[in-house]
Design a protein around this nucleic acid. Sequence first.
DNA 1: GTCTATAACCGGATAGAC
DNA 2: GTCTATCCGGTTATAGAC
Lengths: 218, 218
Amino acid sequence: MAESIQNPPEESTREKIKAAATEEFIHKGFDGARMQAIADRAGANKAMIYYYFRSKEALFEAVLRETFEELVTRFAEIRPEGDPDPRVLIPQIVRLHFRFLAEHPAIPKILLREMHSNHPIVPKVLGEIFGRIRSERYPDFVRIFEAGIRSGKIRDVDPLQTILNIISMNAFYFIARPVLSVGWPDVFASVPEEKLLEMRERAVSDLVLNGLLPRQGD
Amino acid sequence: MAESIQNPPEESTREKIKAAATEEFIHKGFDGARMQAIADRAGANKAMIYYYFRSKEALFEAVLRETFEELVTRFAEIRPEGDPDPRVLIPQIVRLHFRFLAEHPAIPKILLREMHSNHPIVPKVLGEIFGRIRSERYPDFVRIFEAGIRSGKIRDVDPLQTILNIISMNAFYFIARPVLSVGWPDVFASVPEEKLLEMRERAVSDLVLNGLLPRQGD
DNA sequence: GTCTATAACCGGATAGAC
DNA sequence: GTCTATCCGGTTATAGAC
């Protein structure tokens, strides 16, 4: 009874552990993460982790699933409305994807960090999630680009490459963020982050749009 | 004496260990890598690793330094010759960078994998290497882009953003390669790798060049 | 559901023979 | 330079009191 009245509702020990584990896995990776550190971060007891989750592996899988579940949910919101003119849609797509990553920087980090290892969980979870994204959203974008090419509104470029270009430029910024601070400290260690994000998003949008618009000769 | 005659010359135990460690660190990361696994991979005894390198950390630092030393050396070869017209140089720069990564896919992988952890070695080594690249090569490229903008040969885009665009698209392909196989198995698991590389390089070059050339109105 | 104590194991590192 | 045997600290995981 006291249980059902408690609030805030999502601050249960289980949720706190999951949140703490997400942070720990981002910073240390699966092998580097310590169960004790996760417990400390969650303000909980180490034994509680084993009470709620069976093992370190099971905890990791739970974190992965929850994180990518969020990814799929948010991608569903990327539904360009109104005019399907690619010249209008491209900046919209870039913006939605970029801002999504800005709000969830953990996603590309965990994904790419564990990608090269051989935890069987990673391809397992990833296969399912990618399958859903592919079948639910990807064909829409391809169709829009192909229509734009046929009507001559954009140059004849393979839509897959265009999508890779957008994903690359958007995701790389968040993955490589710490490297940039080391490489260009005068820019990435002094300009406010919100300003940097704005500049970066504009640059990506600008390049993709101008790179796809037809030229005189075409 | 038998030592000095032996060949191939670079297949010393020390070199075999270093090569094995590079592989192991790529696939498992620093924390996940096992000294025993490195020894097995090198066909050597575990104690030999400690004989040649002092500790796991020292071995890791040696691997990092050697890898990035190679990076700096190869960047020195990226010296565009002849006409400094950016319209000629952009595809050259993209090609040299892309092909360098294709030959050394370990670089972006190790770099980004350990970036988010807090091993003090990573920022230490990286700071030095980046410093050298920055001071030796970066200003040349910026100067070329700025000259192109002044002469109206390319649009007025921040050279730093252009360079980030190129690095992003080139590097992301190699980092995300395993994810692409899962996401688009019909393409990235069936088309030959050399063909994929060629398509990808062309797409990057095409986008950067067309995105920078001036339009009618400009 | 929460905690303490501890078992069981693993992996980095070293000693010392050859 | 190469190998075997072993130490030792740290980490996952569990037993069991409250």
